[in-house]
Simulated assay, not measured.
Amino acid sequence: MRRSRLVLFLSSLFLTAATALTGAATAQASQLAAAGGYVALGDSYSSGVGAGSYDSASGDCKRSTKAFPRLWATANAPSSFNFTACSGARTGDVLANQLAPLSSATTLVSVTIGGNDAGFADVMTTCVLQSDSACISRINTARAYIDSTLPGKLDSVYSAIRSKAPNARVVVLGYPRFYQLGTTCLGMSETKRKAINDGSDHLNTAIARRVAAHGFVWGDVRPTFTGHEICSGNSWLHSVNWLSIGDSYHPTAAGQSGGYLPVLNSND
């Protein structure tokens, strides 16, 4: 009996210590990242489209004060913060318009990119307005592009980031699954929902491979969004919004703070 109690006590002590060390390590990582400059690159998932509260100075880029890069910067007070992510950005836009703030003093870079190159908006438009077969066909076209062309475009972006920010920790965040399956959901068949989710998984897998090849950090947001997909009853993603069509299939403010920010926090 005494031995059992001792084992339980030591196990509890070990778990407490491990939790404390993990928390300390995460805090230390954030402090190290904040000691230098933070640059947030990417597309609408980084700029915060769908979260509202847009900075008027950002114009069509729609950079939100509720986007995860802004939330991280507010919480960690890096020595400098440059937010160049822009709605609609493709890999070429990152290369042409977003990399100027990077330097040897940059210690943290975050980026979401690749969805627009793969034709995200056209895929979703096709799936919303057309048949199951048309939706699947358009997704298959996107998958072929992801396999053949996107890796090289991602390589160009990642190589440029490393060249301009040689000392930075680079966190590449992915995209959520959009739909909860096996539920009643008006407006989109189960066939379409599954095909869209599978397409998102395919994109994430392709991005993760190139991230690993460059020695960057992969930030998978699918676990944090689980239970908060469209049709879940507690969605952190906008469904089709005919009044503000650009918000469709983008994270809400809760998706930015609850879906994306924790992943950056755990990988910064």
Score class of each variant (00 low, 15 high):
Gly215Asp: 02
Ile196Ser: 00
His250Asn: 06
Arg162Val: 06
Lys164Tyr: 06
Ala206Met: 07
Asp220Asn: 15
Ala160Tyr: 00
Ser239Met: 02
Asn204Thr: 15
His228Cys: 04
Ile161Met: 05
His238Met: 15
Gly174Met: 05
Leu154Trp: 04
Pro223Thr: 04
Trp242Leu: 11
Ala165Gln: 15
Cys231Gln: 04
Gly258Pro: 09
Ile245Arg: 11
Gly187Cys: 01
Ile161Thr: 03
Ala165Glu: 12
Arg162Lys: 15
Tyr249Val: 15
Glu229Asp: 12
Ser189Lys: 03
Gly246Trp: 14
Ser200Trp: 08
Gly258Leu: 10
Asp155His: 03
Gln180Lys: 10
Ala206Trp: 05
Ser232Arg: 07
Gly258Cys: 10
Val172Ala: 15
Lys164Val: 03
Ser235Arg: 05
Pro223Asp: 06
Tyr179Pro: 01
His214Gly: 05
Val170Asp: 00
Thr226Ile: 09
Ala253Arg: 09
Leu203Val: 12
Val157Gln: 02
Arg177Glu: 09
Trp236Arg: 11
Asp247Gln: 03
Arg193Gln: 11
Pro251Ile: 05
Asn197His: 05
Cys231Glu: 03
Ser239Lys: 01
Ala254Gln: 13
Ala254Leu: 14
Ala253Gly: 04
Cys185Ile: 07
Ala253Trp: 14
Ser232Asp: 08
Thr205Pro: 03
Val221Pro: 11
Arg210Asn: 12
Ala213Met: 03
Gly219Ile: 09
Gly255Met: 08
Arg169Gly: 00
Arg177Trp: 10
Val211Lys: 02
Val171Arg: 00
Gly199Val: 02
Val170Phe: 00
Glu229Val: 06
Gly215Val: 02
Ala165Trp: 10
Val172Glu: 05
Thr184Pro: 06
Lys192Asp: 00
Tyr249Thr: 09
Leu173Pro: 02
Ala165Thr: 08
Gln256Pro: 03
Trp236Tyr: 10
Asp247Gly: 00
Lys194Arg: 09
Gly227Gln: 13
